[in-house]
Simulated scan of single mutants.
Amino acid sequence: MLVSVKQQAINLPLKRPGEDPTAEAASGLQSAALQALRDNIQAQANQGSTQVQESITRQATQQVNAATAISDKVDEAFAKTRVQLQTVGSSALEDTSSAMAQFKDYMSKTPEERLRDSILEEMGITEEEYEAMPPEKQLAVGEEIAQRMQDKAAMAQVEKAQESRSDEKHPVTDMFLASL
């Protein structure tokens, strides 16, 4: 709370000291009143200053409390993320070992076994389902697999022949480009 006081100029007739005792008394009273007013204003200003300081202290305390709350929330979020990463890390490790086992199993098969497995997959039959079939159905599926294997081998030979023809054209093109 700020108080504004305007000091009013009092025009008193100029007299020499000692001429008028009432004027001197009035002047002394006026001086004392002005001094009391100044003291009162100073006290109010100090009180206002104290209130401002208290207000600033309250605001600073609130800001520190808010910063502490934010820091606590960040720490909590970090801890949750760390726990999640540890959980995901262990399951990823299990997935990796499973994928590694599948890869090793695949690589241990011969190319013919891999081709047979891919044909079974195209037919929508798993190895377990194939093993559970009666012998007649296994024979029919086996013949189908053999036929598809022959078809794929023939297609591979045609592609290889086309590649060898296209390879023959490239040296001429390469020589032409080299001459430029």
Rank of each mutant, 00 (worst) to 15 (best):
V3I: 14
V5A: 14
K6V: 14
Q7C: 03
Q8P: 02
Q8R: 07
Q8D: 04
A9P: 00
A9W: 02
A9R: 07
P13M: 10
P13C: 02
P13H: 07
P13W: 04
P13L: 11
K15L: 09
R16D: 06
P17W: 03
G18L: 04
D20C: 07
P21S: 02
A23D: 05
L29V: 09
Q30P: 00
A33L: 11
L34G: 09
Q35C: 01
A36K: 06
A36M: 08
L37M: 15
D39Q: 10
N40I: 01
I41H: 04
Q42E: 13
Q44W: 10
Q44T: 05
A45Y: 01
Q47L: 11
G48Q: 03
S49I: 04
V52D: 10
V52T: 05
V52S: 08
Q53I: 08
S55M: 05
S55F: 11
T57P: 00
T57I: 09
T57G: 06
R58I: 14
T61L: 14
T61G: 10
Q62A: 08
A66R: 13
A66N: 09
A67H: 03
A69H: 08
A69V: 05
I70V: 11
V74G: 00
D75Q: 14
D75C: 01
E76R: 08
F78Y: 13
A79P: 01
T81H: 11
R82G: 03
R82M: 07
V83Y: 05
Q84N: 13
Q86R: 09
T87W: 02
V88A: 11
V88D: 15
G89S: 09
S91G: 01
A92I: 10
A92P: 00
L93W: 02
L93H: 06
E94T: 13
D95W: 02
D95E: 14
D95H: 09
T96K: 12
S97C: 02
S97P: 00
S97K: 14
A99G: 10
A101R: 14
F103Q: 14
F103I: 07
D105F: 15
M107I: 14
M107Y: 08
K109Q: 15
K109L: 15
T110S: 15
E112K: 12
E112M: 11
E112G: 08
R114N: 11
R116A: 08
D117P: 01
D117E: 09
D117T: 06
S118Y: 06
I119R: 07
E122W: 05
G124Q: 05
G124R: 03
T126S: 15
E128W: 00
E128Y: 02
E128K: 09
E129H: 05
Y130Q: 08
A132T: 04
M133V: 02
P134D: 15
P134M: 05
K137Y: 06
K137P: 01
K137L: 12
Q138I: 03
A140P: 00
R148Q: 12
M149F: 04
Q150S: 13
D151I: 09
D151Y: 06
A153L: 07
A154W: 02
A156W: 03
A156C: 01
V158Q: 12
K160W: 13
A161H: 03
Q162P: 02
E163C: 00
S164K: 13
S164D: 12
K169D: 12
M175S: 13
S179E: 04
S179T: 10
